[in-house]
Design a protein around this nucleic acid. Structure first.
Lengths: 157, 157
DNA sequence: ACTTAACCTAGTAAAATAGTCAACTATTAG
DNA sequence: CTAATAGTTGACTATTTTACTAGGTTAAGT
């Protein structure tokens, strides 16, 4: 389990999606504007999230992305590992032969540690994060801001 | 709090050091050989660890590095943040103005999450890791291996 | 003096991150 | 049907970080 900015982008985008897609699909353009992440980078991230079966793309006008599961069924660990490619965290993926065909210190240590962090993040769902008031307030503010900043003719709630 | 290979290298090296420096200082050359990390990269990492006051270098023959504190007083979070430079995890270090002078979603979310992970890793000390039998066994094996592989005339315990 | 090993600096190759550009396909509104 | 929307894909670029190399200087022990 690695924790990088890439994973943070993915979690942030998913949180934005979870908040705004309750009525209709959300376009990556909107998420990009609200979270100041480049559209093309979001496309890369969402391509992985889609392949991981976490989001579904809806094409055509009024389309966008929506979640495949409920917010309480999507956890942070899944999001991060979906975009992080889970690159061999110890050079010898599970084979324990990174060092002269033997288990290395890294293995004994980091595998366990990594697993504990994963368990921890698995127990935090998107729903948990959405419940936090602070997040909701910020998201609401950003939501209206985008509506003011960019001309939006469609779905004026 | 970021979790990358760099941090893992640092933790691994510190664990190696904690295990082997109980009698006398440990040279980076030895750690490099045991953990298959390049010597110069270790030097970089230990320069940071030294500046963070976690290790102390002893120059001259018989020198090397030793821990400044007890193994139960050094936690994983400290090691990682010592080498990871704690690069602004949200683009607006604590100022919460990353996006149009307002708190962004990233802030509300990741700051809290990051803090929780930090708290978690803060409660794991080097001593905790050393107590695990598996780690000790591997370390012991590597210890003797190096003595066989490389000609070591000094400090044959 | 000579060796050892920390300490320091600069550079560099490879990888990951972040983003761009352009073409294409599916869907839907008109 | 046609045009607009928006996802999908791939190839390509720039920046940053990671990991490592090469060369030195400094301090301490023999």
């Amino acid at each position: 389990m690695r924790l990088t900015t890439k994973g943070r982008y993915a979690v942030t985008a998913m949180l934005d999606l979870a908040f705004h897609s309750q009525i209709k699909p959300v376009t990556l353009t909107d998420i990009a504007a609200r979270q100041t992440i480049s559209l093309s980078y979001l496309e890369q991230l969402f391509a992985r999230l889609r392949r991981a079966g976490m989001v579904k793309g809806v094409r055509g006008p009024g389309g966008g992305y929506k979640l495949c599961r409920n917010t309480n069924e999507i956890n942070i660990a899944d999001i991060i590992s979906a975009v992080d490619e889970s690159l061999d965290s110890t050079k010898c993926r599970g084979e324990a032969n990174c060092q002269k065909d033997q288990a290395c210190l890294t293995h004994a240590l980091w595998m366990g540690l990594s697993e504990q962090i994963r368990n921890y993040l698995e127990n935090i769902s998107l729903a948990d994060l959405l419940e936090k008031n602070q997040v909701q307030d910020v998201a609401k503010r950003q939501h209206y801001e985008v509506h003011q900043a960019i001309e939006v003719h469609r779905h004026s709630e």
